[in-house]
Structures are given as structure tokens and as C-alpha cells.
Amino acid sequence: MATGNVENWTGNIADIGALYPFVGIETPLVIAGVVFWIGWHVVQLRRESAELDEEVKKFGNSDAMRKVLDSTDPDKR
């Protein structure tokens, strides 16, 4: 059983190419990697929205906020 193309270092080293295990699996690996990357963004976006909503409910005080907002130029926020 061998997962890679290298079984010993005694042959002709110049004939050795890819060193990583399971050569030939590159395209499925890329697909899995892209799903992981895009999925991370999606999960993070949802989680952040939920956290912000919760924080606004928990800590937001509309009267105090209005006073602060009234003191600044509303077009430039």
C-alpha cells in the first residue's frame, strides 16, 4: 500500500514529479476547497447578521441613539 508515487529515494530522483499523496485527485480537491472557502463567507455573513441583531436588541437604546445621531450631519453618515 502506498498513497504516493515515491516508495524510496534510491532510484533516479530526476524522474520524480509530484510528491504529495493521492496524485490525480487535484480537481476534486479544488472543488472541495472552493466549497469550504465560499461556505465560510456564507456562514460568517449569517452569523454576523444574527450577532448584530442580537446586540442591537440587547444594548441599543433608541432615545440615546437618536440624540447622538441628531448631533451629526445625517447625509454624511
Binding site: 530522483i13 514529479g17 509530484a18 487535484e26
Partner: peptide, 25 residues
Amino acid sequence: AANSELMGAHLGGPPVQGSLTADDT
């Protein structure tokens, strides 16, 4: 390309993937 064998550990020997040449590796 992300699925190229040259985007991983490689010693420069002949390629496995048909899209690559020995000069590439």
C-alpha cells in the same frame, strides 16, 4: 491553475497531467 500538479510539492520530473510538458515541470 489550482488543479495543476505544479501547485503542490514537486521535484520537476515528468508530469502526470496531460496539460503539462516536461519543460513546464
